[in-house]
Computed example of a mutant assay.
Amino acid sequence: MSAQKPFERDRDPAGRARNARPRDGLGRPLPHGAEGVERQPEGVERTPGETLDEAQRLLDAGKPFHAHEVFEDAWKSSAGPERALWKGLAQLAVGLTHAERGNARGAVSLLRRAADAVAPFRQNPPYGIDVDGLAGWAERLAEDLETGPHGVAQPPRLRG
């Protein structure tokens, strides 16, 4: 009896496992060998303005999962109170991802968490972020998802 060769996992330069499977526009894994959407590079350092511009471009292109990755980079590389803002924006994008995947329950939870996370920035919104508009958008979408059938949500405007 011959020993089977273990599955070789794709690893980054630091040796951490990566998932090399192709993904669709909402970040769902596709079968190996399928044609997927180009993945968002991770660990990219951007200015806040570049983060917002790139995330808006991805949201407008129907790629909220990818926008989440952009916000996650900002969240993980920031410190202080703004860290909560970027985390809230990442939750907003992944909440929209769940809504578009048809997972209303997960979307509602994340959208409400996102609205709560960005709310403290209403009095002094940084970088031209439309905090009131985003929190309201997230709450309205959460309410819509709770009350019945839903369609694909229009992406939010990050800046006023």
Results as ranks from 00 to 15, higher is better:
Asp10Gln: 15
Asp12Val: 13
Pro13Tyr: 06
Ala14Gly: 10
Ala14Cys: 10
Arg16Phe: 12
Arg16Cys: 08
Ala17Ser: 11
Arg18Leu: 15
Arg18Trp: 10
Arg21Asn: 15
Arg23Asn: 00
Arg23Cys: 00
Gly25Asp: 15
Leu26Tyr: 08
Leu26Asn: 07
Leu26Met: 10
Gly27Glu: 02
Gly27Arg: 00
Pro29Tyr: 04
Leu30Arg: 07
Leu30Met: 12
His32Ile: 03
Gly33Glu: 11
Glu35Tyr: 02
Gly36Leu: 01
Glu38Gln: 10
Glu42Cys: 11
Glu42Asn: 08
Gly43Thr: 12
Gly43Lys: 06
Gly43Pro: 04
Val44Cys: 03
Val44Gln: 07
Arg46Ala: 02
Arg46Lys: 05
Arg46Pro: 00
Thr47Val: 09
Pro48His: 06
Glu50Trp: 06
Leu52Pro: 07
Asp53Arg: 14
Ala55His: 01
Arg57His: 13
Leu58Gln: 05
Leu59Asp: 06
Asp60Lys: 10
Ala61Phe: 07
Gly62Phe: 09
Gly62Asn: 10
Pro64Ile: 00
Phe65Gly: 00
His66Phe: 01
His66Pro: 01
Ala67Val: 07
His68Val: 00
His68Gln: 04
Glu69Gln: 08
Val70Gln: 01
Val70Phe: 00
Val70Ile: 13
Phe71Pro: 04
Phe71Cys: 09
Glu72Gly: 03
Glu72Trp: 01
Glu72Phe: 00
Ala74Glu: 07
Ala74Cys: 06
Lys76Gly: 08
Ser78Asp: 09
Ala79Pro: 05
Ala79Asn: 10
Gly80Met: 06
Gly80Ala: 08
Glu82Pro: 13
Arg83Trp: 04
Arg83Cys: 14
Leu85Tyr: 14
Leu85Cys: 08
Leu85Asp: 05
Leu85Glu: 05
Trp86Pro: 02
Trp86Ala: 04
Trp86Tyr: 05
Trp86Glu: 02
Gly88Ile: 07
Gly88Val: 11
